[in-house]
Simulated scan of single mutants.
Amino acid sequence: MAEDISFSVPNNNGDPVRVGAWRFAGDGQGPTVHLQAAVHADEIAGMLVLHLLMPKLARAEAAGRLKGSVTVVPQANPLGIGQFRQGRILGRFHEATGHNFNRGFDQSAAMLQPSTVVQHWQKSLVQLASNADVVLDLHTDDEALPYLYLHRSFWPRGRALAAAMRMEVVIIWDDGGDGSFEETLITPWLRTGGNERQMAATLELRGQGDVSDDHATQDAEGLYAWLCGHGVIDEAREPADWPVEAMDMGQMETILAPRAGVLVFEKTLGDFVEQGQRFARIIGRPGDPSSEVVLLAEQAGRMVTRYRDRLVPQGMVVAKFTGSQVSRNWNGGLLDPD
């Protein structure tokens, strides 16, 4: 039976709020694993995935098949989960401070006495995961194909995880600098060279509206199968056969909205476009044909993400595409710098 290792952090009023966490104890022969979802509190899909995965882990533990210890945090962010405004959750940033919940974990973890509630929460979450060999952080994009965000040091080993999760795209990154949860956990590994048991990744589970039993059952089964293949669970599973395309982050083509207006997509997720091909348009002033702006692909590739809303502000990311060469707009840094 899973051990309840939940902990509390202060909210804006200083009152304690609970972070639910459970640990399934293995026999010590396999890797230690940390699984969490919804660091960005409005990214819901991973919560359901881990909710469905936990009974599978409980059965493996009861049957004596669990070789590694697995910690599961299905709803990691109690600060963001209550930020409802006009019927919509605002879970990417902490309203009181403007802090992106998945930035600055490194600074928070290094503090003896965190000075904000976000820093206190971040430090506690890093401490919980700091001894893990495997760290998987479950997120979602606006609207997206499922994809894996992976440091180069874990490629090509990460192909098996992407295949198990039916993710056709893996975005490979080298330099972060934002202090994300994943980056903070793997920094000590990178200094020492790591080992074959260690593995970390951010899993983007489609888009924020893709929350269903069908998707979550598939994803929970994929995670379970990968844990079997990684030596965490003693159960034979056939390796997944799934096409996986690795893409350097600099080759991802990000298209920004040149103006605000009604956003009309002419291509859907997964569609291939040629360089210069139109994929969307923005109508700045409905009723005025001269206000319509056509958006063209910078280079040939597949549409991986799309903006969720259909009224887009100027400068917002409209879509991201794979590419065959480094984007002319690429200047290093993050895929999503905010």
Score class of each variant (00 low, 15 high):
Arg237Pro: 02
Ile186Asp: 05
Thr254Tyr: 00
Gln198Glu: 15
Gly194Asn: 11
Ala246Arg: 08
Ile233Gly: 00
Asp141Gln: 15
Leu138Val: 12
Gly209Lys: 11
Gly194Asp: 13
Arg152Pro: 08
Ala144Gln: 01
Val244Arg: 00
Leu223Gly: 03
Met167Cys: 09
Arg197Trp: 14
Asp178Phe: 07
Asp214Val: 08
Met199Gly: 09
Glu221Thr: 13
Pro188Thr: 10
Ser180Gln: 03
Ala164Ile: 05
Tyr224Val: 11
His215Val: 08
Gly231Gln: 12
Ala257Gly: 04
Val170Pro: 00
Gln251Ala: 10
Leu145Arg: 00
Ser180Thr: 15
Ala162Trp: 02
Gly229Thr: 09
Phe154Ser: 04
Ile172Pro: 11
Gly250Phe: 08
His215Phe: 13
Met252Lys: 05
Asp213Tyr: 00
Leu203Gly: 07
Trp242Asp: 06
Arg159Cys: 01
Thr217Phe: 01
Glu238Ala: 13
Arg197Cys: 10
Asp214Gln: 09
Leu150Lys: 03
Val244Glu: 02
Arg237His: 12
Phe154Ala: 07
Gln251Arg: 13
Met247Glu: 03
Ala257Met: 00
Pro146Leu: 01
Val135Arg: 06
Leu150Pro: 01
Arg191Glu: 15
Asp142Tyr: 00
Glu245Ser: 14
Ala257His: 06
Ala246Phe: 02
Phe181Ala: 15
Arg237Ala: 06
Val135Gly: 07
His215Arg: 15
Gly250Cys: 05
Ala164Tyr: 00
Glu238Phe: 02
Gln198Leu: 13
Ala160Thr: 05
Gly179Pro: 05
Met167Trp: 00
Thr217Ser: 11
Gln208Pro: 10
Arg166Ser: 05
Phe181Val: 14
Met199Ser: 12
Gly176Asn: 09
Gly209Phe: 03
Asp248Ala: 13
Glu238Lys: 14
Arg166Asn: 08
Ala163Arg: 01
Arg152Asp: 11
